[in-house]
Simulated scan of single mutants.
Amino acid sequence: MDSGAIRRRLALGTAVLAAAGLLAFMSPGSAQAASPFCSGRKVRTLPFTTGSVQVYKRSGYVCAVTFPGAHGSRKRMSVSVQARGGRPVMNSGRFAHHAGPVTLYAGHRCVRVKGSVGSGSVSSGWILC
């Protein structure tokens, strides 16, 4: 075998291994894909007309991020998480890609998650009880 054929086979083998690794990571039976913003597993997605809020939980900590429906120009966005009996942790401003993440320790208490993008908003009520 010449060196060109060896390189092609090595490249093909590397590509197959990379694809197999991605499929194993993203398969439905495995743990959910990690967020670049929040650690833990995704427990809720709260959609609304102008965006959505993704909620993650890990070891008593709750994390939330608001995403706009359409990326591009900077928009007024906010996200907040409040444990029952506590004060909300909030992030708001004019952002192009996301508001947050905001994280707080809720333990076993219920939490309320709110998010907004422009004129649209969502409030979860008390969840994760």
Score class of each variant (00 low, 15 high):
120 G>I: 12
96 A>T: 07
12 L>C: 00
12 L>W: 02
89 V>L: 11
22 L>T: 14
96 A>H: 07
23 L>C: 10
99 A>T: 03
81 V>D: 00
85 G>E: 10
17 L>Y: 03
77 M>D: 11
44 R>K: 14
18 A>H: 07
66 T>I: 05
60 G>W: 03
17 L>N: 04
128 L>M: 07
55 V>T: 02
63 C>M: 06
8 R>H: 14
72 G>E: 09
58 R>V: 11
97 H>L: 13
109 R>A: 15
57 K>I: 02
93 G>N: 09
80 S>M: 07
3 S>D: 15
122 V>T: 15
109 R>Y: 04
67 F>R: 04
52 S>L: 00
108 H>P: 01
18 A>R: 03
87 R>E: 13
92 S>I: 05
97 H>G: 04
40 G>E: 06
36 P>N: 10
113 V>I: 13
19 A>F: 14
79 V>N: 04
12 L>A: 10
52 S>K: 09
5 A>K: 11
106 A>D: 00
18 A>L: 15
75 K>W: 05
64 A>D: 07
120 G>R: 11
36 P>D: 09
111 V>Y: 00
30 S>A: 14
117 V>H: 00
93 G>Y: 05
13 G>P: 08
29 G>L: 01
23 L>P: 02
6 I>G: 00
115 G>T: 05
11 A>H: 09
83 A>N: 11
38 C>G: 08
106 A>V: 02
36 P>M: 07
47 P>H: 00
43 V>F: 00
52 S>N: 12
107 G>A: 06
7 R>E: 15
19 A>M: 14
39 S>F: 02
58 R>I: 09
89 V>W: 08
104 L>D: 02
107 G>P: 08
82 Q>H: 02
1 M>Y: 12
63 C>Q: 06
23 L>D: 06
68 P>H: 07
56 Y>E: 08
85 G>K: 10
115 G>N: 02
93 G>D: 07
62 V>Y: 01
27 S>G: 05
91 N>S: 15
82 Q>R: 13
123 S>G: 13
114 K>S: 15
100 G>I: 09
89 V>S: 11
77 M>R: 08
116 S>D: 02
107 G>T: 04
72 G>F: 10
47 P>D: 13
101 P>S: 03
65 V>Y: 00
5 A>L: 12
82 Q>P: 02
9 R>V: 08
81 V>L: 00
104 L>F: 07
109 R>K: 15
58 R>M: 06
25 F>L: 13
13 G>F: 11
21 G>Y: 08
85 G>W: 10
90 M>W: 02
112 R>W: 04
102 V>D: 01
51 G>Y: 07
70 A>S: 13
26 M>W: 12
90 M>G: 00
45 T>P: 00
74 R>V: 09
119 S>Y: 04
39 S>M: 06
74 R>H: 06
48 F>P: 10
61 Y>D: 08
104 L>T: 14
76 R>K: 12
22 L>V: 15
29 G>R: 03
114 K>E: 15
95 F>R: 11
70 A>R: 13
88 P>H: 05
28 P>D: 12
10 L>N: 14
71 H>C: 05
46 L>D: 04
